[in-house]
Amino acid sequence: MSEAPAAPPLRLTVRLSADAVVPGRVVEVEAQWLGEARRLSLRDDGAGGGGDLPADGIFVGELRGARPSLLPIAVAVRAAPEAEAAPVWSGVFRPMVEEDQLHLRLIDGPGGLRAAETLAAPLGERADAREAAWTAAGFGWALFVLGVCVGLALLGRERA
């Protein structure tokens, strides 16, 4: 059996976004972290860390510690601080990097509230727009390279 190396750290930012801002709503996260149940209330008052902005409908919170291989997480929402907690999402998160992120989107559907995992979405920017911009820039680069090659060919022909 090998010596256990120092566990790498993990700073996990959990974000849950909702289409509408509901006053009094509370979002709670429970993570089973290396044998310890950790609870966290996500904030939407600008104090949640991880770039939290007040009252933008995005609840944010951070968990820190030694990086686990797999991290079971459950998320529940209360309509008000005293209201009953409604579980909206649970799953097993696999941390990839020291500063990782779990993004959830709250959906108010016919069956009630639930949440779905979404792609990385930096604040104020849609993930698909970021993807499209990257791909478009890649096409731009390809055109630039083609232009350089054509230019080299024309220059070579002139010199020949």
């Binding site: 390809a142 630039f144 390279v145």
Partner: peptide
Amino acid sequence: ELDRIGHSLSAHLPATTLA
């Protein structure tokens, strides 16, 4: 995102090769 959720599966061809 491809690295995060798409198993990094890409057949990216260098633009220089394509050109």
